[in-house]
Design a protein around this nucleic acid. Sequence first.
DNA 1: GAAATGCATTGACAAATATCTATATGTTGC
DNA 2: GCAACATATAGATATTTGTCAATGCATTTC
Lengths: 105, 105
Amino acid sequence: MLEMDERKVAAIFKAFGDENRIRIIKLLRSGEKCACKLLEEINVTQPTLSHHMKILCDAEIVVGRKEGKWMHYSISEKGVKQAKECLEQLTTLNVEYKSKSCCEK
Amino acid sequence: MLEMDERKVAAIFKAFGDENRIRIIKLLRSGEKCACKLLEEINVTQPTLSHHMKILCDAEIVVGRKEGKWMHYSISEKGVKQAKECLEQLTTLNVEYKSKSCCEK
DNA sequence: GAAATGCATTGACAAATATCTATATGTTGC
DNA sequence: GCAACATATAGATATTTGTCAATGCATTTC
């Protein structure tokens, strides 16, 4: 995977960085759910839920599927894979270019 | 691993959710670096860097080691492992309790 | 087509966050 | 001890973000 720019990486992790969005993702672990169902379970108004769903979808962590007047949301396997690779790439020590710590007594 | 509460999970990902902190982490991939070196590479003032390092350390993504007047920072293998497990746990479909999507035409 | 329903968008507002300057704290070398 | 240096803390400020009420836009149902 090509290394993403900092802005994109930050956006992905930002999407994970909110308690209510964490709750939403947890609810989606048991499979696709429509917005009205999610709304019953988390303690926010409908516009706030819609806002969170947009952030999760923009970050490609969640995908939405419109069916009539309902929106069904589910965890995006592709997006999750990307997030994991991102975290992996970000945190893997690069021994090849390893340098001594700069300041010495 | 025990499932962490939403607050803690959000805090970990929040720490990854800032462009400058992403840059800092990337710099640490090549090994331990002191604050002054990091400061040369990212475009913020010294107190701002200090602030970011605190957030990264609090989230246990980075560890600091004081040596005389210098602070040496490095990626925490333990913290990174925890973040990865957290992401894994959060995004793994729970087929056991899988339910039909609620709203049907 | 009018009413009802589900969701998105807009605009306002409060809380959280990133940033800076100024200052404090701790360490080293003279 | 004092000056120089590295980092942390405090306080102020601007920006971002999470939230809500109000409204708009589809879609369904009668």
